[in-house]
Write a protein that binds this DNA or RNA. Structure first.
Lengths: 347, 347
DNA sequence: CATTCAAATTAAAACGTTTTCATTTACTGT
DNA sequence: ACAGTAAATGAAAACGTTTTAATTTGAATG
């Protein structure tokens, strides 16, 4: 087997406990022996066994990641690599590792979470999504393990540390932007209503309309999967209406792409015939034709802050519950203009 | 602390070792006691401590994942979520977990790998990329830990288990497809030459030209980052040539998207003026305008098979080195046509 | 009714650390 | 020179399992 702390101790002529303390750089060890021990470690190219260390210290320095179902279309969204990057960076800075679990069914995922939590594989958990009735969230609350959710919890918002954008306000503003351009036939194309983010965005949209005394129209609210095909479906429904909308608030860039394509196929030109705003500002939103006006929600930061605050909670169990709101920003590109005006460019 | 194996043992009136064997479902325990113990476990809602188990059995049931630098543009490629999904599924099926490491610099990543390997955090490693001179690969070979690389190793191909596409042949075929359409001014737009996949594809491209007695032209070979901006750069270079190419072999969909956009901006129409084939067939390749003709390399399977064969190696250290080739398929969409012909559609 | 042998169970060592508590060592001030 | 004390180190327990080796049980055999 590999070289252990005992080997180092023997070579350096000290007790294993001393070696352990040198590793931890305890002030209780003299500089002289520290030096001696470090040399021994070097010489044997010793690396502490993480598992043993975890067992003894009852902490794994590992964060558990809970993803949505791998088969779920959401998983395909470029959102994930980006949060992951943020999470990874936040964790790495504090020397934490990342342990992942996914599964095909919700049941599989649930079991995975239970295993990693009860099995003591992780010190804390971040939930990478927020759903309406989530068994996993309930479970996490019942255990006393630190966790944070990315997105707004559906219930008990005050009791759950989470990092989120103000999706309500963002959507309200974005809708008002459209209204400001002169639109009053604005439709909302949302994703799966099981995700809280969809609800928040819908609410923001509705609020904007109400504030500006524009009547809500149920035909103008469509929900599809967070994906390309979803976008296509939505367009067909919307455009077959007697008074089709002149502007669209789309809940996700990927869907917006689908919308854009379908529109193009139908010979409808954006933004002259229809304006579009969407969310996330993922890489390809600037690569679409025309480039998408989209709300940048700072996905990376969502992950980064989640990791950071989870680690705080792990280190200090008394840490109060927090609600971290990541700023957003409307990136104006070329999918919005005044309604019914030919050849108008971005305002 | 949580409930341990001893608590269960006590309640069931047996020794801890018996409980352990019940968990492992050892045939050496009578059905009667198994029943008794299982009831006790149920009653206490016992969950084995994974860390302790790992320490005792010297195996973690965990696979380490090594990603390219998080800051590297490659990371943004939709390739990753998809391999991840494959990996996850392959691992999950055999009850393995996934441990991730990334970092901003190569040094950081290297340290992460050393930690997880020497620290005994993982039973095996999969390298999610293949670079030309890779310190990490060298390290992995020096340790005797099972590992597999996704992609073709640059050196010692025979000694390293890897799963890959036949990128050489794929690119050759694709180039021949273009030649078959009548093109003889075909350019190659590759990514970072540090990635072996780029080299393989370049080689395949060159081979096709040679086989068909089309002279190689260095001006027709451009290398950029695997990304949108890369695509734009490439187009500018290529089109400023005295005899610009009539067809492009692009090494990645994302780059191809960039190419498509730039072309569109310049008023050059695809496929009438220029044909394009690219690789990976990621989600958005069918959402581009026009939809991309792209080689589907079965990214998911790449990950899935990597996980599967790594687990085999872990379970059986005598497992021979393998080379697993995942099939590819050219998905013909609307970016290829005969050269110099107006309004021709897909052939 | 011993005796043998297989089957079932248990006690204890092992895995490689950290940490508590005890001990040794080296000074300080009288 | 000597108690007293602070600093440095060490011995051993603890973390929660698995596994080896030993022990008990019980049935089958002569």
């Amino acid at each position: 087997m590999a070289v252990t702390i005992k080997d180092v101790a023997k070579l350096a002529n000290v007790a294993p406990s001393t070696v352990s303390r040198v590793i931890a750089n305890s002030p209780r060890i003299s500089e002289k022996t520290k030096q001696k021990v470090r040399e021994a470690m070097e010489q044997l190219s010793y690396h502490p066994n993480f598992i043993a260390r975890s067992l003894a210290s009852q902490s794994t320095q590992t964060i558990g990641l809970v993803m949505p179902s791998a088969t779920d279309v959401v998983f395909q969204n470029p959102f994930f690599p980006t949060v992951l990057r943020g999470l990874s960076e936040g964790a790495h800075e504090k020397q934490y590792g990342l342990y992942m679990t996914t599964g095909k069914t919700d049941e599989e995922i649930y079991d995975g979470v239970v295993q990693m939590v009860q099995g003591g594989r992780v010190d804390g958990v971040v939930l990478l999504y927020s759903k309406v009735e989530d068994k996993i969230l309930t479970y996490l609350q019942s255990q006393d393990i630190p966790f944070v959710v990315i997105g707004k919890p559906f219930k008990n918002v005050e009791e759950i540390t989470h990092v989120d954008n103000d999706n309500f306000r963002a959507t309200k503003e974005v809708t008002e932007y459209l209204i400001g351009l002169g639109h009053d036939h604005i439709a909302f194309v949302g994703g799966n209503l099981n995700f809280v983010v969809t609800i928040e965005r819908l609410l923001g949209y509705e609020k904007a309309l109400r504030d500006h005394h524009i009547p809500l129209n149920n035909d103008y609210i469509v929900h599809e999967q967070f994906l390309k095909e979803g976008g296509q479906e939505a367009v067909r429904e919307l455009l077959s209406l007697s008074t089709p909308p002149t502007a669209l608030v789309v809940a996700d860039d990927l869907m917006a792409l689908g919308v854009l394509n379908t529109l193009d196929e139908m010979g409808i030109v954006v933004p002259e015939d229809i304006s579009i705003v969407s969310f996330n500002n993922v890489l390809l939103s600037e690569m679409s034709r025309p480039p998408l006006t989209s709300v940048d929600i700072n996905i990376f930061d969502l992950g980064y802050e989640a990791a950071k605050s989870l680690i705080q909670m792990i280190k200090n169990p008394k840490e109060p519950t927090k609600r971290i709101i990541i700023p957003y920003e409307l990136i104006k590109r070329y999918t919005c203009s005044h309604p019914n005006i030919e050849r108008t460019v971005q305002v």
